[in-house]
């Protein structure tokens, strides 16, 4: 599918296959992919995180404001810690207060967005001449970060106890608890990872423009979920496809980039994303439907 779309654009537009353009595609794909990878974990554990867009903005602002004072490396760590803390709070609300993840993270979406705007006072924080921070978004760094995160998360899901516990919690939280999985701890871990991943993509976004802005990454949460679903991770939990999420984010980035090169109005990008999402899932739903009827008839 991805190769097909890429091939079509390569034929239609001579500029598509230039190295510079492909780098653009990969950079924009990796920002969504990083959030999407975290979200894959959340969805595999049977939850959502709607607060990722706000978390990305908040972490970006925190880091940008600290770069001047404590240096780039520490500021980046502080940003990631901010994200993980927001994620931890999400997890605590879900596990300790018994609020459904959808509502808990919906509440946190407005709260964290408000916090980011209060922190910046609604103004932009500029970083003049901080070229060191720019490293985060220049060249292949975002792509490498996304790939590294993907490999780590894949390893965690496939080869560690924590990963198996995530999938067990997602497929049936009650049974997982009965067989001794400490589901609350698992969820706290998952939400912290999602928060840190969101923060990382927020840092990349803010490094691209060397600006901290409280309104950064609005609506990122729904694009991230769309990418995960497009990659074949079912919303019911218990299964995860890390490679699928990567492919999904590259596919969306390729299509958006291709449409731009072909001078198609930016308005059509949302239409294609919607159609793509519905088409992919409808195919999937029809296929499982047929399988189910076949099972019924053979039985």
């Amino acid at each position: 599918m991805l190769l097909m779309v890429g091939g079509v654009f390569a034929v239609l537009s001579p500029r598509f296959l230039t190295p510079g353009n492909l780098l653009n595609v990969c950079t924009s794909a990796s920002v969504v992919a990083i959030v999407g990878l975290g979200m894959t974990l959340a969805i595999a554990s049977g939850n959502f995180d709607l607060s990722v867009g706000s978390t990305a903005a908040f972490a970006g602002c925190v880091t940008v404001s600290l770069v001047q004072q404590i240096g780039v490396a520490l500021a980046i760590l502080a940003g990631l810690a901010t994200g993980a803390t927001v994620g931890l709070i999400n997890g605590l609300i879900v596990t300790e207060l018994g609020v459904p993840a959808f509502i808990a993270t919906l509440g946190m979406l407005t709260i964290v967005r408000g916090a980011a705007l209060i922190y910046t006072g609604g103004r932009d924080i500029y970083l003049y001449g901080q070229t060191q921070y720019k490293i985060l978004s220049s060249g292949l760094t975002p792509v490498l970060l996304a790939l590294a995160l993907a490999i780590v998360l894949w390893f965690v899901l496939q080869h560690t106890r924590f990963g198996r516990h995530i999938l067990a919690t997602g497929s049936n939280a009650m049974s997982a608890r009965r067989v001794g999985v400490r589901t609350s701890l698992v969820l706290l871990g998952v939400f912290s990872i999602v928060g840190a991943a969101a923060a990382l993509s927020g840092l990349i976004l803010s490094a691209q423009v060397l600006t901290g802005n409280g309104r950064l990454a609005t609506g990122l949460e729904l694009s991230a979920i769309a990418v995960v679903v497009l990659g074949g991770t079912p919303l019911t939990g218990g299964q995860a496809s890390i490679a699928g999420t990567l492919q999904g984010s590259v596919l969306v980035a390729v299509i958006n980039n291709g449409l731009n090169l072909l001078n198609v109005s930016i308005f059509y990008q949302n239409v294609t994303l919607g159609l793509l999402l519905l088409g992919a899932i409808a195919l999937e739903a029809l296929r499982t439907d047929r399988r189910r009827t076949k099972q019924l008839t053979t039985r």
């Binding site: 979920i225 308005f267 059509y268 990008q269 949302n270 919607g274 899932i281």
Partner: peptide, 10 residues
């Protein structure tokens, strides 16, 4: 979610 993007674009 899909129709949200679709209608928004439309």
């Amino acid at each position: 979610l899909g129709t949200m993007f679709l209608i928004n674009g439309l």
